[in-house]
Design a protein around this nucleic acid. Structure first.
Lengths: 205, 205
DNA sequence: CCTTAGTTAGTTATTGATTACTCACTTTAT
DNA sequence: ATAAAGTGAGTAATCAATAACTAACTAAGG
């Protein structure tokens, strides 16, 4: 009756369950009891693999950081033009959120904000990293003239990151009735269109 | 030693404390014990005024809705041009968040998402209302030519609301080292600049 | 090949603290 | 006097974490 597994396998299982339950129950309401039930282990069994609940959260952050940075690299490697790169970066991000809807909630959790400084640091670093990638790509586009010259790359990056977060809230508040990726692509195109220089006069009139 | 107050006064006191503590402790970690201590009443004394904790949250939502809609009206009444109106609406929103930093966290709380349908409905309605105001103002600006004709008002509204939410996360994650209103105004100007038609060619080069 | 010692994943039982909420009572303002 | 505001003492439920123990896997010695 005792399903014994290797510690490593069990750890990844637990982290995956954390992400799922953080979405279902909320990061600040996720209990070790629920977590244990999700991975079919008794509640104290969890503490065999993670000394405290905070360490559990940190492992989740590490996992997210790993998969995200990997996805960014792939996205940047696949595309060459600045517009396509920006699109790819944001799309990857939307896909990550769609796959792990708990991420925005974790960003607002009190576990991160007041109780787990390490967790907070991890996410701040991750966001800074993403912002840097966007700034670099936007600067590149500005230099080659595909983006408006009067658009500060840093501001553009903030506008794009905000779009992702705004979409995430709309998606979850709207009980996820629409496809985050589709709606995101549409609005991203809209925003990128605003980034484009308009050398000719407008034709709408 | 017993500071007896009218129920109405006490209720508003409790709602104010809820907003403060929701920021300090997090919406999903706010306890009735902490709340009672904040308003200098014993813990069961809270339930004299609100039958359940859910009703407590709903009262908070009502309070936020009231102050927000009032602020929107004032903002719209004070300004006439579409650009100034949009700026005023967003600025009001940033000021609200700066005054009650718990609001974004409440939007992500599980109290709202899974446990308190009434709370959720209240906030969804409030956001819809705000979006409608923005859409109307943007449409007005599009019609009079102060905004680009190819910008869909609905998309523009989403971009602006996302900006507010993105700024709010940056502000709280950055431990509020910058002024939300100042940084918001800067980026809002940046975004509105993108909304403006560019009849002439760019001069930056 | 097969026993056995050591390691590790897991268990049951329990801890003290905290949770929202109830009830019977007391105080206070009108 | 009386209605409403507030209290003290409790409730059952749930929380993260610990203690003491056991089953399963691994590897070395005969």
């Amino acid at each position: 009756m005792r399903a014994r597994k290797s510690a490593e396998l069990r750890k990844t299982e637990i982290v995956a369950a954390m992400l799922r339950l953080a979405d279902e129950l909320g990061p600040d309401r996720l209990t070790t009891v629920a977590l244990a039930k999700a991975v079919a282990v008794t509640q104290p069994g969890i503490f065999r693999h993670f000394p405290t609940k905070q360490d559990l959260w940190f492992a989740v952050a590490e996992h997210i950081a790993l998969t995200m940075t990997a996805a960014w690299e792939v996205a940047l490697a696949a595309e060459t033009t600045p517009q396509k790169r920006v699109t790819a970066l944001i799309t990857v991000q939307l896909r990550q959120i769609a796959a792990h809807p708990a991420i925005p909630a974790i960003l607002h959790s009190r576990e991160l904000h007041t109780e787990n400084a390490a967790l907070r640091a991890q996410f701040v670093a991750l966001m800074t990293q993403f912002q840097t990638l966007l700034v670099e790509t936007l600067a590149e586009g500005s230099a080659t003239g595909v983006f408006r010259g009067d658009l500060a790359p840093k501001d553009g990056a903030i506008l794009l990151i905000s779009l992702v977060q705004g979409l995430a809230i709309r998606w979850s508040l709207g009980q996820r009735v629409f496809s985050l990726e589709d709606e995101g692509s549409r609005l991203l195109a809209c925003q990128l269109d605003l980034f484009r220089p308009q050398p000719a006069s407008e034709k709408t009139k």
